[in-house]
Amino acid sequence: MRTLTSIDELDFAATMPAPVMVQRTTDHALLEGTLAGDEDAFAELVSRYRNQITSYIYRMTNDYDGAVDLAQETFLRVYRAASRYQTTHAFSTYIYRIATNLAISELRKRKRRRLVSLTGLLASDDGQEARDFNPPDERPLQDIDLVDAEKRAVVKRAIATLPDKYRAPLVLRDVEGKSYDEIAAILRTSEGTVKSRINRARNFLRDKMRSYI
């Protein structure tokens, strides 16, 4: 009689069913389903992109409630214009373009309303060179978490002071991790322009956060 030395020798693998390959429905297929009246397809689309879009708009506008509102407006526009959607671009490019347009128009509205932000209190007349409202403390801090939290706050404030045309490509590249060609498609501009704007945005941030780098 043969003695089993390991559980593998029971050969369970042969009797186990093969793993089912769950094929993920493409965004285009979901949008077609939405167009055909399938509410679940649209719900799936929303669940895929709601966090990304909310986060992206939040990085652009620095206002959570407003970002949620604009994210919903983004999905509403996708729903309304589902019949006009063309599959020449990726759906993510399409939805990010809508979100970008909404975020930029919101930023312009704010400028018109002349909202006074705390970070912009000490901004110069051209609105581009804002001094830090809360200058960094040069002394070493004890708690590393506090340091990280402060760094993040500074980065947020610094991004918020970027001009609109630099802010969108920088957030898409360094926060959302999009490729240059994707960013160019979202912003409807050339790759060269995108690279140039990202470079300028980084230089701008470097100057503002020199103490933290």
Binding site: R50, N51, A71, L76, K151, V155, D174, L205, M209, I213
Partner: peptide
């Protein structure tokens, strides 16, 4: 310098949509 800067920017945690996002969207 560029690596540190990008690490700093990338350190911003993603923000999640609120729990009632879908419900509000459906109502809208």
């Amino acid at each position: 310098e560029r690596t540190r800067l990008r690490e700093l920017i990338g350190s911003l945690e993603p923000v999640a949509a609120p729990g009632d996002f879908d419900v509000r969207l459906r109502a809208r």
